[in-house]
């Protein structure tokens, strides 16, 4: 606890302003600008979050492979230090840009806005943001996305939804990733789904594997449908 110095009574002249300002208002202001940019170009913006190593970049590669002939897509990748993930995604033949956060554990709207002019938005139907691998901080920062998708790998504990409730509460879709490993792991998709839906009963859940391609067609269909919806508005 901080020590309160009550100079107020002595002076009797203190002025108080009761406010109700979101303390991330500065971030949300920029997130709104991003939303408007995306609306102008009808670009669907999807924010991909997960713990470190749950398979985000691999999923971006797989998605690019499957959809790049159908849709114009691009990726921005947030990472603490390296350029590696963007390079991996570029190898699939789509445009990807690395945002090196320099130690910051999440992406903020300002960082996205800063690189937006490097994307040819009118010619991009689907823009992914691969967030920094961490389920805590990225949950609080709105990036102006249309949908937030959280990966939950079978190699992680299935108690994540209750440990990081804000992320699951603010997500639209949970992808149970690395499903090819299910036979070897004490991971219950049923239990994780139940916990996640206790937090957020509207959460969509899909089981996927970038390796065996289980669920990848459903994932791509979901994206194509959301892109279509966006372009109709």
């Amino acid at each position: 606890m901080s020590i309160e110095k009550s100079t107020k009574a002595a002076r009797g002249t203190a002025q108080c302003e009761n406010t109700n300002i979101n303390l991330l208002k500065a971030n949300d202001f920029v997130a709104d600008i991003i939303k408007k940019e995306m609306a102008k170009s009808n670009t669907l913006l999807v924010n991909i979050t997960s713990s470190a190593g749950s398979g985000k970049t691999t999923l971006m590669q797989k998605t690019a492979e499957k959809l790049k002939d159908k849709l114009n897509m691009a990726v921005m990748v947030g990472d603490l230090e390296t350029e590696r993930d963007a390079e991996r995604i570029r190898e699939t033949g789509i445009f990807a840009l690395q945002i090196v956060t320099g130690g910051i554990c999440h992406l903020e709207a300002q960082m996205i806005h800063q690189v937006l002019d490097q994307f040819d938005l009118p010619n991009i139907d689907l823009l992914f943001i691969e967030n920094v691998g961490n389920l805590v901080c990225p949950a609080s920062f709105d990036l102006g996305e249309d949908y937030r998708v959280t990966l939950m790998a079978t190699t992680e504990g299935d108690d994540k939804p209750k440990k990081y409730p804000r992320m699951f509460l603010t997500s639209d879709m949970m992808l149970v990733s690395k499903a090819d490993l299910l036979p070897y792991l004490p991971f219950s998709v049923e239990a994780v789904t139940k916990d996640a839906r206790e937090v957020n009963h509207e959460l969509e859940v899909l089981q996927i594997s970038s390796l065996s391609e289980e669920g990848i067609d459903e994932w791509c269909d979901w994206l194509v449908q959301k892109v279509k919806q966006k372009q109709q508005t």
Partner: peptide, 16 residues
């Protein structure tokens, strides 16, 4: 959620 999600600056004090 009606409480518990807040991230608010709900009061600011100034010297006169």
């Amino acid at each position: 959620v009606i409480q518990g999600e807040e991230m608010l600056i709900h009061k600011v004090e100034f010297d006169d």
